[in-house]
Write a protein that binds this DNA or RNA. Structure first.
Length: 496
RNA sequence: GGGCCAUUAGCUCAGUUCGGUAGAGCAGCUGACUCUUAAUCAGUUGGUCCAAGGUUCGAAUCCUUGAUGGCCCA
């Protein structure tokens, strides 16, 4: 295969290095400071004070060369490390013969170790005057163009490392996501929750309604599923006496990919004994307003052309109220299954035959109301049929003590007071099995051990799940889930 | 699953209307240059035009199928 001319040019420099006895990939240089720290130290000094490098100490830095401006006997470049960038200045007067050798071998993209003293240039930019320079890694592929950077979305996702090298703002999104997750941990740790890890490989599909990924354990000759939710294990811990637990980890759902869906995604689930779904609404308001304030400095957060206001309390509607007030659907019509089916049909909702009234009402809600819920809004009183693990409402046993939180037209959180009546839970599982027989691929399975656990007794508990990726999207003003996932799933690329 | 759009040099993009020698900038290479920062100046290399078929004297361009990606809808 013919080598690209740019790669060939860089490989030629690599060969020259080898011919000169230089190791292109050594690991014996230790930087002693980050570039941002040097900038902090000398930011306030004037360029007159910093005219002469020999007045200042020598620093060792390491990073990637990000620009090369050569003038014959002197050359400027920038070095980029994890903290940022700093300009460096090579001078023949300082480096002697070493100057010509380095400049002959150096390309943008190479990783260098530099020792040098700081000064300020005519334009006032803090710069290190290079006194020693060592190649730490020779790059043999050209970087994308310096001005436009890397724009092609497919390449940005496939080669995220390149995206990070040339598109600085991308790193900020992920730094914010990481900070958000740290804050969430702090929030729950401070309230006495234990962070736990429960199995990712399940023998029984449960805890949510979704199609699972299947896998296989050879030694045990056993089919396993990647978990669609950790719920049933976390509640086993509540049975065991933990009282407050949370888990931040991956769930896997074998469904379509879109700007809102990645097959593996990160979920926060937490469970709190002796609490109700109403307590969790307050806790959720507290958590989200805390995150918005800590991450963006204010409770009003820009999201596209909208301003999302995280100031508590959030709006609350029962599902019926929301259908009536926002969806324009008459709740009296929804009391009859056949009328529900007609309304669903008029809204182009596809029914497979196993759906009962509760399921259809929920579908009508999603179709007519969901995208109108821009500001944070709790929707409560979900039908029992779509809430197989939630406690029934004391006044109306057809609905559950459950809420979903919607922001920017998307489901962000789902929570309920937990069903701890083993007999009721058993019947709900059996109903799920019936639906599975009727063709509901998302229906859960009967979990014998979970029922057994409930029979020992689970304290009254409330639990909630929050989609971390979607929350990160909101707080980083990102409009595709792929922009907040480091390596989103893509179809395989063709290699030449 | 359906509709629309995109795919041309390493990168960012023209060229497709109306078929007629494959283009620019950056990057690379050669040369000049000791305060630039998209350095500048002169010269220059580089192409499976996403893939496979078809129409045509002739296809990056028109047609068909497919691949990948994006947006919208379900």
């Amino acid at each position: 295969m013919e080598e690209n001319i740019l790669i060939e040019s860089k490989k030629n420099k690599l060969k020259k290095m080898l011919a000169l006895g230089l190791n292109p990939y050594p690991n014996d240089f230790k930087p002693n400071i980050h570039t941002a720290k040097i900038k902090d130290m000398y930011e306030s000094k004037s360029k007159e004070e910093m005219h002469n490098p020999s007045d200042f100490p020598e620093f060792s830095i390491a990073g990637r060369v990000m620009g090369l401006r050569s003038f014959g006997k002197s050359t400027f470049a920038h070095i980029k490390d994890a903290s940022g960038k700093i300009q460096i200045f090579f001078q023949k007067a300082t480096l002697g013969e070493e100057y010509d050798k380095v400049l002959e071998l150096l390309d943008v993209g190479d990783i260098l170790g530099i020792k040098g003293r700081p000064f300020k240039t005519k334009t006032g930019e803090l710069t290190l005057n290079v006194e020693f320079c060592k190649f730490l890694c020779k790059s043999i592929r050209p970087l994308p163009e310096k001005w436009h950077g890397l724009v092609d979305i497919e390449t940005r996702y496939r080669q995220r490392y390149l995206d990070f090298i040339v598109n600085e703002e991308v790193k900020k999104v992920f730094e914010k996501r990481i900070k958000m997750i740290k804050l969430i941990r702090k929030f729950f740790d401070d309230k006495g929750f234990f962070e736990v890890e429960t199995p990712m490989m399940h023998q029984i599909v449960g805890g949510a309604t979704a199609k699972p990924f299947k896998t296989y354990h050879n030694a045990l000759d056993m089919e396993l599923y990647l978990r669609i939710a950790p719920e049933l294990y976390l509640k086993r811990l509540i049975v065991g006496g933990f009282e407050r637990v949370y888990e931040i980890n991956r769930n896997f759902r074998n469904e379509g990919i879109s700007t809102q869906h990645n097959p593996e995604f990160t979920m926060l689930e937490f469970y709190m004994a002796y609490a109700t779904y109403e307590d969790l609404m307050m806790l959720t308001e507290e958590l989200l307003s805390y995150l918005a304030l800590e991450l963006n400095g204010q409770l009003k957060v820009e999201y596209g052309d909208k301003i999302i206001d995280f100031t508590p309390p959030f709006k609350r509607y029962t599902m019926e109220e929301a259908l009536k007030e926002l969806g324009g659907v008459d709740i009296n019509d929804l009391k009859d299954l056949e009328v529900c089916k007609k309304i669903a049909k008029s809204l182009n909702i596809e029914l497979k035959g196993f759906e009962g009234r509760g399921k259809i009402i929920t579908e009508i809600f999603e179709k007519t109301v969901e995208d109108k819920l821009i500001q944070p809004t709790f929707i409560t009183h979900f039908p029992v049929e779509v809430s197989p693990l939630a406690r029934r409402n004391a006044e109306n046993p057809e609905v559950t003590d459950r809420f979903e939180l919607y922001i920017a037209g998307r489901e962000i959180a789902n929570a309920f007071s937990e069903l701890n009546d083993p007999e009721d839970q058993k019947n709900r599982f059996l109903h799920q099995l019936e639906n599975k027989m009727k063709g509901d691929e998302e229906a859960g399975e009967y979990d014998y051990d979970y029922i057994r656990a409930l029979e020992y007794g689970m304290p009254p508990t409330a639990g909630e799940g929050i989609g971390i990726d979607r929350l990160a999207m909101l707080l980083t003003n990102s409009h595709s889930i792929r922009d907040v996932i480091l390596f989103p799933l893509l179809k395989p690329e063709k290699h030449p």
